[in-house]
């Protein structure tokens, strides 16, 4: 009889240990434990070689009054401003490739090629293309726009935007791949219904496609945020070495410099951990909010496994 069966609240320990155990163990060992140690380092004055010396909140007060850090944050902020493009453009392209034009495989592979090319090579390539007498300027002069043929690589106002653009351009292919996989599983009948209702392509995109791949969009957004804060370093350095001045020094380059070139890993760790805790928490809030329609993350109706 139904009433007699006792519903377990949780899955069995054995099952959990098997499925969850190995991953959690590795995460604990290689990601959590070092962070705990890192958390201690953040409160020390440490040069990486000598024993760390506890200095309380000094690193944190230093963070608040460091003008270069502020500039670096602003530079990373410029990347973040372009984040919506970074997130939506691949989806748009994936949808377009999927539906409207032939040769989807070709396009997907083409778009992802920059990911296979080392960011250092991309940086060097763009230094050549955007050089004072490089192909871009030659073309600009040739078509009469010589006034625009400035020194792209050392223009303090533009250089960060150029780096941000390069970053997006060299990674959007991954998004296209991701979204292509997601799009392939959308129910065709939804589009049919929309078409019958008289929706054009753009409307079908926003009202059918986008909601259907919401999970993928969330995941890609997290990836974009991670990339915004950590992948500008090799590319940016190869292109402009963080300069001129600090015009293209991003936060991750700043942290890297502090930790490994300026002998201040204590300070660097403090910045790193603070910043990324903030991002992590913001992302959690973002994800909580994006599940607005009262739907639960977990569905625990029914019998447990």
């Amino acid at each position: 009889m139904m009433g007699k069966r006792r519903m377990r609240k949780y899955s069995s320990i054995g099952t959990l240990a098997l499925f969850l155990g190995p991953s959690l163990l590795i995460i604990a060992l290689l990601r959590v434990w070092p962070v705990i140690q890192g958390a201690f380092i953040a409160f020390t004055q440490w040069d990486g070689i000598r024993p760390p010396v506890f200095n309380g909140l000094d690193n944190f007060t230093r963070m608040l009054s460091d003008p270069v850090l502020l500039t670096a944050l602003g530079n990373t902020g410029k990347i973040l401003i372009l984040a919506p493009v970074w997130i939506i453009l691949p989806l748009l392209l994936a949808a377009v490739i999927q539906d409207r034009i032939p040769g989807a495989s070709f396009f997907k592979i083409s778009y992802v090629l920059p990911v296979l090319v080392s960011p250092a090579v991309i940086g060097v390539l763009f230094v050549i293309i955007l050089g004072p007498d490089g192909p871009l300027n030659i073309v600009l002069r040739g078509i009469g726009l010589g006034a625009l043929a400035i020194n792209w690589t050392v223009d303090t106002t533009l250089v960060m935007w150029i780096v941000a653009g390069m970053l997006i351009w060299s990674t959007f292919g991954l998004g296209v791949l991701l979204f292509s996989a997601g799009l392939a599983s959308i129910d065709e009948s939804l589009y049919e219904a929309a078409r019958i209702d008289g929706a054009n392509w753009m409307q079908r995109f926003w009202y059918v496609t986008v909601p259907s791949v919401r999970g993928v969009i969330e995941y890609w957004t997290v990836m974009v945020v991670i990339m915004a804060f950590s992948s500008a370093i090799v590319l940016g350095y190869a292109f402009s070495q963080g300069g001129p001045g600090y015009a293209s020094t991003t936060v991750d380059l700043f942290i890297y410099n502090q930790a490994f070139r300026y002998g201040a890993p204590g300070y660097a760790t403090a910045i790193g951990i603070t910043l990324f805790l903030l991002i992590g928490i913001l992302l959690v809030i973002f994800l909580r909010l994006s599940r607005r329609r009262g739907e639960l993350m977990f569905d625990d109706s029914g019998t447990p496994l």
């Binding site: 949780y10 959590v32 070092p34 962070v35 890192g38 804060f229 942290i255 930790a259 951990i273 990324f276």
Partner: peptide
């Protein structure tokens, strides 16, 4: 599909861990 305590919190924690960079954590790792 399984049920265990702190499930939601743990997943969020994993997400935060994902975002934390490993650059500054090289010596401990």
């Amino acid at each position: 599909f399984l049920r265990f305590p702190f499930r939601a919190g743990l997943l969020r924690l994993i997400m935060i861990i994902m975002v934390l960079p490993v650059t500054v954590l090289i010596p401990p790792i």
